[in-house]
Design a protein around this nucleic acid. Structure first.
Lengths: 143, 143
DNA sequence: TCTAGATAAATCGCATACGATATAATCGCG
DNA sequence: CGCGATTATATCGTATGCGATTTATCTAGA
């Protein structure tokens, strides 16, 4: 006898992640951003000049996902991609002025989302930390 | 100033869901299953004869996602898709003998995963329930 | 020094996901 | 009864994600 999906942690995670994605979409669509692009923009707004693999390590994504996404964001005029002059294997990422402006416009999005969840800020922080522990146990980030 | 992704609940969920997906992959690959296909198989093993929208309501997926996936699973010989004779808009889904055999082989997968998480069964159940509440608050299933 | 191995991005193919739309079947209201 | 609205799938286009591979660059050891 097998467990049905509603009884499985993996499915709860899978479906909750999609629900969060869907909840963010209407907040991000007016900005022209997809949800993963929003994460990239936010990461670069905090730390400029990251390489593709720095960003991938933070977001747990591979170059095969990031490269096409970054090219789309470059085409939108939000991001620049330049080879590192010292180590030419690295591609350094920076936000343009438009990128920074967009990140500023997106600042309020997490708060709007937090309100939609109906959870307190403490509950949100606790859940976030439990999930981070689970994730890092399953798939540690590079040191 | 914006929050960085590691501080955001949405990112914790996003990345934990991907980590779970990645942890399931090596368990499912020997069976020839992808992770969403595993959820479909499990759902049909518990309740046979569901329509596409029944299944979509349980898994929170739309026909535009399910139809191609179900066709692939039909091509593998695991699932049959037949129009309901009473209401011909409905497509009824059933597992074949191979489908049932595969579901039986997959029974041990959640336990193997649970061990990988390092969480107790109570912790897993609690986390699952919190995530289900969050999901249903953001995107309720049809009644 | 010079090359074998490691590393960083990029490319390719495939499987989700979803918004928008199309099509077919059924329902409901006058 | 008849037709517009609704419902259930399916189709199309686009954006992730990832496994496997490729290319370019760098590093380390004989």
């Amino acid at each position: 006898m097998s467990l049905a999906p509603p009884d499985m942690l993996c499915f709860a995670l899978h479906s909750a992640a999609h629900a969060v994605h869907a909840a963010y979409a209407p907040l991000l669509q007016p900005l022209g951003l997809t949800y993963p692009q929003y994460l990239v923009l936010t990461s670069l707004a905090v730390r400029d000049g990251q390489s593709v693999s720095d960003l991938g390590n933070e977001l747990r994504l591979e170059s095969n996902t990031l490269t096409p996404m970054l090219k789309r964001m470059q085409a939108e005029g939000w991001v620049t991609r330049t080879r590192d002059t010292v180590d030419e294997r690295l591609v350094r990422l920076s936000l343009t002025a438009e990128g920074h402006a967009l990140a500023a416009r997106a600042t309020g999005v997490p708060r709007a989302f937090a309100e939609r969840t109906g959870l307190t800020l403490d509950q949100i922080a606790d859940l976030r930390d439990v999930l981070a522990v689970l994730r890092d146990r399953l798939k540690p980030a590079r040191p």
